[in-house]
């Protein structure tokens, strides 16, 4: 059915994981420590893009305001740190919960509309959030908030130093693998099947007795909460939060990552984040006008490879239709 069978997939995933585990060691040996931080950024965006892929690809809900949850998660960590709460055990779960709660509110209202109107209303909510954080002068307003450092993380009597690039890298890697695995299990479970069936034919699912609105809302909340985790990590990664995280172009970029990687493919979000950020990095090292080639490449992909990178390697071409 696909170019790579399921067994091949498992092997490729294991190989990729192995590569990710030895990556920082190799970079340090090559004296290229900069790339360890860069890889962390990619993995964090991989979480964010994968969470968007859950609603966009699997659920068929084209949300144009996903950056709202990235920003919410980041700001929760930032604000709590500013108020003296640095423990990751407290601030990260709160970030996830808060983003999930925002997603519940936004989703409950937005999911009453469909199609283009859904795209626009999610965008509107993200814009509201954007202006809300701009108005928070106590927490930096438009200029953003510089954080004193990273969250602290205690495991029993052991205190992990998250400022250490290696510790940080492996923590981010662990979280990304956990999120991807959880999403995989979720989509294999009954819930995932129902969500995909709703995408294919909502009227029929409703007719055979599924509460489609509630399923979609739960899916939206899960995606928001996971993106909040990515936001919490991003705040730590950059030691900085600002309203720029919630700008509509950020929502656009997340969407671009998903479409680039492959809408509805399990690794679509992760691969899209990888390719997009590497493209940016490579091209911007050659020219300050990096947006021009990136834009041209995106356009070329849209016109000639509409199913994204995963789609190009798989024959299930119609898998990722948006709506």
């Amino acid at each position: 059915m696909t170019l790579f069978s399921a067994a091949h997939h498992r092997w490729l995933a294991m190989l990729a994981l192995l590569g990710l585990v030895v990556f920082p060691l190799a970079m340090q040996a090559l004296d290229q420590s900069f790339y360890i931080g860069f890889a962390c950024r990619i993995m964090i965006y991989a979480i964010a893009a994968s969470s968007l892929n859950l609603i966009l690809g699997n659920g068929g809900m084209v949300s144009f305001g996903h950056a709202a949850f990235l920003g919410a998660g980041a700001y929760v960590v930032g604000i709590m740190m500013e108020e003296g709460i640095v423990s990751a055990w407290i601030s990260w779960p709160v970030a996830v919960l808060a983003s999930g709660l925002f997603a519940l509110l936004i989703g409950a209202l937005s999911l009453r509309t469909r199609g283009v109107y859904f795209i626009m209303i999610t965008l509107a909510f993200a814009q509201m959030m954007y202006y809300l954080f701009i108005s928070l002068k106590a927490y930096g307003g438009e200029d953003g908030l510089s954080l004193p450092g990273r969250s602290s993380l205690e495991l029993g009597s052991l205190s992990l130093n998250l400022k250490d690039e290696f510790t940080w890298y492996y923590l981010v890697l662990l979280l990304m693998v956990l999120v991807l695995y959880a999403l995989h299990r979720l989509m294999q479970a009954r819930f995932g099947r129902v969500i995909e069936a709703i995408r294919e034919n909502e009227a029929r699912m409703e007719a055979i007795g599924f509460a489609t609105y509630r399923y979609k809302l739960v899916c939206f909340v899960i995606a928001g909460a996971l993106c909040g985790l990515a936001g919490a990590l991003l705040a730590n990664q950059n030691s900085f939060v600002s309203p720029k995280l919630i700008e509509w172009t950020q929502s656009g970029t997340l969407m671009v990552m998903v479409i680039l990687g492959g809408v509805g493919y399990h690794y679509g979000g992760a691969i899209g984040a990888l390719v997009m950020l590497v493209l940016e990095e490579v091209i911007s090292s050659y020219t300050i006008y990096w947006q021009l080639p990136v834009g041209l490449i995106l356009l070329a992909i849209v016109l000639w490879a509409p199913t994204g990178i995963c789609g190009a390697f798989s024959r299930r071409a119609q898998h990722g239709k948006g709506h």
Partner: peptide, 18 residues
Amino acid sequence: DHMTQVLATFALILISNE
């Protein structure tokens, strides 16, 4: 579909800005 249009015209924004 709308998603593709968003992506393509987003790319056009990058191109025209640059």
